[in-house]
Design a protein around this nucleic acid. Structure first.
Lengths: 142, 142
DNA sequence: GTTTGACTTAGAGCGCACTCGAAGTTCTAT
DNA sequence: ATAGAACTTCGAGTGCGCTCTAAGTCAAAC
């Protein structure tokens, strides 16, 4: 485990020496290496992951940033297929096309869904709290 | 669809005339009739559902109350197996045994999980909002 | 009386998101 | 030099929570 990372110049896109192994990325993101390979296979990444001479994956900071955002989309229950669409838009953008309006729309839609999600969970939590309180009350005949 | 429900006396446990069909319950809870039967099969209900002379299910208010709580547990991602445990505790309680401490512990555990869930979602939402804001900014060159 | 439609059962099927297995290669440490 | 851990690919397997199908019953509407 090499911890001396010689600060890659920001904006570099080719894999360099400060890059991370799949296990390191997995740990940082709190997901498994299996899952990382799965996401890659499913076309969720923005560009091919770099490889070391040994053909082992080497993730750049940019990869990490995207994967971090991706996991936040997953944590808020965005389906894999939807994330894939988003990734495709980003890739199309890199070819000169302007897909920002679509990306913005997609994120706004998702935002709405997340707010609804939060609402449902919060309301359910209130019911659970109420039940807990009623149990506690009963066990505290004072 | 009979909407004139002659207010069942509260506390009644035997199926009566004001009871609801599976379709009515499904609609009220926002789940499918298929799902309701599935929950029943899985042993998530507190006692056998009443039947009309036609052998069609008739849900009491008490059934509805429990199913309402159960859907809130589901909405907060409690696994079916865990809900089943909880239901079993409630049923054991009805036999004279006191399972309240266990039920309280189970709900408290779940509450903790829900809070963590809310936290993760909220943090992810912040990242999504940040991204949305950065897109909007770029499209507003003033 | 016949049709329509909601209900019943038992069991199979499905979609999603991983998760694992096998067999082979490569890195790291001694 | 060699052992063991970590990586590679490809494809299959798993777990969860529904979701649907088929064949049949029953009640109400026309």
């Amino acid at each position: 485990m090499t911890l001396t990372a010689p600060a890659p110049q920001p904006g570099s896109s080719a894999p360099g020496l400060g890059d991370l192994s799949i296990a390191e990325v997995a740990e940082r993101l709190g997901i498994s290496a299996h899952t990382l390979r799965y996401y890659e296979r499913e076309g969720l990444l923005l560009r091919p992951v770099g490889r070391a001479s040994s053909s082992h994956r080497r993730y750049t900071e940019a990869d990490l940033t995207w994967l971090g955002f991706l996991t936040k989309l997953r944590l808020t229950a965005m389906p894999i297929a939807r994330i894939k669409e988003y990734a495709e838009l980003v890739r199309r953008d890199a070819t000169g096309e302007d897909t920002e309006p679509e990306r913005l729309a997609l994120l706004r839609d998702h935002r709405t869904a997340v707010l609804a999600q939060l609402d449902q969970i919060t309301q359910s939590l209130a019911a659970i709290d109420f039940k807990i309180a009623s149990y506690e009350e009963r066990n505290t005949p004072s």
